[in-house]
Design a protein around this nucleic acid. Sequence first.
DNA 1: CAATTTTTTGATTAATCGATCAAAATGATT
DNA 2: AATCATTTTGATCGATTAATCAAAAAATTG
Lengths: 197, 197
Amino acid sequence: MTDSFIAEARREQIVLACIDTLEEVGYHNLSLTKVAKKARISTGLISYHFHDKLDLMNHTLLFLVAKQLDFIRGNVGLSHSATKKLEAFIEAHLAYQETHYKHTIALIEIVFTARNENGVPYYRMEDEQEEDGLRTMLVNILEEGQQNGEFTSSFQTEIVASFIVGAIEERMLKPNSSIPREQYAIELVKMVMKLIV
Amino acid sequence: MTDSFIAEARREQIVLACIDTLEEVGYHNLSLTKVAKKARISTGLISYHFHDKLDLMNHTLLFLVAKQLDFIRGNVGLSHSATKKLEAFIEAHLAYQETHYKHTIALIEIVFTARNENGVPYYRMEDEQEEDGLRTMLVNILEEGQQNGEFTSSFQTEIVASFIVGAIEERMLKPNSSIPREQYAIELVKMVMKLIV
DNA sequence: CAATTTTTTGATTAATCGATCAAAATGATT
DNA sequence: AATCATTTTGATCGATTAATCAAAAAATTG
């Protein structure tokens, strides 16, 4: 295995097949054989391009997180006030979950089922150098708003961030709610504004 | 297998061993052999008392949900105003997650990994007759407060409920946050009050 | 205490898994 | 074209799994 162009393309093909398989059968019932079949390649080829199953999962997780982060960051970046950034964050996050439902499911499957070499699942890990994650982006927006006076300084950014992330992830688990996404986003923004202005 | 007294005790013993095993190795690496070893019984005995692995998981899930519901309902029931009930709900829910951390982990493991006979995981199921769940309890409290004038009627109970549940479950995943539980509960109550009074 | 039912054991079975590897195919280089 | 490196295949291995079952043990009953 090298780092050639073709090898990189093959790895992405396998990662995409892995995402499809995760959505269909879940991590628990996923096997390298199923991923290989989905990608229409032999099983040995996966082992050639990835060290082991966990390595494939790590790459798939990084792929999923990067895609989501790029999308949301792209939307947030277009806004110039903290208020607008916050709105963009919430709306883009909720929209991405809906339009990329398969990716969202695959992400959940990995986070809640895969475990590292020490047997610790991702959802129980201390977020190491999560210096560039979604949550950090959100906290930064809140801090920016506090500093330039758009938001009051009487709230703790970490707690409000938990509040926002929780509401978004709650929606992630119940996408077929009776409340349409657009309305959920509007109401969530309104509620957050009540808390921070 | 019958419904005798001893059989019921044995089933509970197996369910408790199942919870321990779930917390230690997760659903993905759980095997009936490991549960049997944890319970210090033979593997065949599990099959004698439960139809199959999924049946054991269903019983374990019901056990976990019932325990949590009983605890929170017990605390909420002592209060007489909707406001006090809401405070009790949030505080009891957060407290239970901390004091019964093992149960919380086991619950997560089942909900996010176990799949029914049709291959659908619990977290993607349409909440059938969830007529007596935690969320319903919360919505009822909010509605009660709206009806007796403690809360304003200008919010949708379902959305605020999502907000509250999301914030609590977010905490469930990050129990070692820098913010102590008591403070998190107080701040959450304060924020919710800003939204609904 | 003998007969019967309930409970428990532990070996067995068939299936599936991740990973390995020799061999083949393909691509690149000279 | 010949040589070498890279990529791909598919069979194979040992390990683990859920579930079954005959037989033993324990409890209950008459």
